[in-house]
Design a protein around this nucleic acid. Structure first.
Lengths: 162, 162
DNA sequence: GAGAGACTACTCGGATACAGTCTGTCCGAGTAAATCCGG
DNA sequence: CCGGATTTACTCGGACAGACTGTATCCGAGTAGTCTCTC
């Protein structure tokens, strides 16, 4: 059970897009070059973000992506679920129903205990992701990245933005 | 990111094995028939549990599996990790290193903020699974399963145990 | 110089291909209990 | 009746195949700016 690499890409792309000047767009090509990943495949992740309303896109030259909401309103969970889907990590196939001792027509009341516990763990994971916003990530990155690198990166983004 | 069906099987099998008389064994065949799953494939999950020391096995006739530890000492996490592996759900490929603005020879101090947050969420998931023991599951099942079904199931297990 | 049309750069979506994992099956090797057979 | 040899029932491990997913690439359709050409 391992998340796709697209999740990592999407998170880093959102972090970059958060530093973009208002009403400017950054192309897939620029984002792909910045992160050193294949442009065409990264485009799939960005499409997922677009469909989820996390980023906004414009066609034509000087087109590309920008965030669709302020970074404070975007949680890690929003981005992860946009790429990975929002299905629970544990699927209950209700194998207790195959118990040969069951009387015919026996009907269960609610999901089985195993599934409930696994779903609680899943919810703990989601809850943590929900509690961290993109704005908080930017703040953390600002603290741990050297000031000159932070500045030159911002310049690079501004130069490529259209 | 969805857990294998083997995880569900392993959890239910451990719950059944917990109801086994001391020093008795239950065969893969019996467990497979009880849960209505393919015997050969279920055997893979049980092998994983065996390698992790969660269950103990004996060869020959009247052989099979029994728990290797008391149910109170077995957590959900033990069982899930035995089948699914203990690798983190998020893998950081350190794509920040591809930032074209980086000076040559730049060296990061510690994992990047994105990975740290994802790993915290992963730990929240594991922590929840670690907090629930197999004994607690048995107790929950005892409360929600009708008494007569609980009894006849115990009898079925005892009859098939060797 | 102004407006219409062509051009360009980009996103979007579908089609395709490849690799790895998940699911499932099959079979031989090894082991321990039960059974059989000779003394 | 007893002890050794055979049989039996099971686990274990590897090999194998098919389906599905993740990764990656390519190309055509559509769109919005930009450029060019004509009047």
């Amino acid at each position: 059970m391992i998340l796709k690499s697209q999740v990592e890409w999407a998170l880093h792309c959102c972090a970059i897009l958060a530093g973009l000047p208002q009403n400017k767009y950054l192309s897939t090509k620029a984002l792909a070059e910045f992160h050193g990943v294949p442009k065409e495949y990264l485009s799939k992740a960005l499409q997922s973000l677009s469909q989820a309303g996390i980023v906004h896109t414009t066609l034509g030259p000087s087109g590309g992506y920008r965030l669709g909401k302020p970074p404070a309103d975007l949680s890690f969970l929003d981005i992860v679920e946009a790429v990975e889907g929002n299905a629970r990590t544990f699927t209950c196939s209700n194998i207790r129903a195959n118990n040969p001792c069951r009387p015919q027509g026996f009907c269960d009341s609610g999901p089985c205990a195993v599934a409930r516990i696994m779903w609680e763990a899943d919810e703990a994971w989601r809850s943590k992701l929900r509690s961290v916003s993109l704005a908080q990530l930017i703040e953390m990155l600002g603290q741990e990245i050297p000031a000159d690198l932070w500045k030159s990166t911002a310049q690079w983004v501004q130069q490529r933005a259209g």
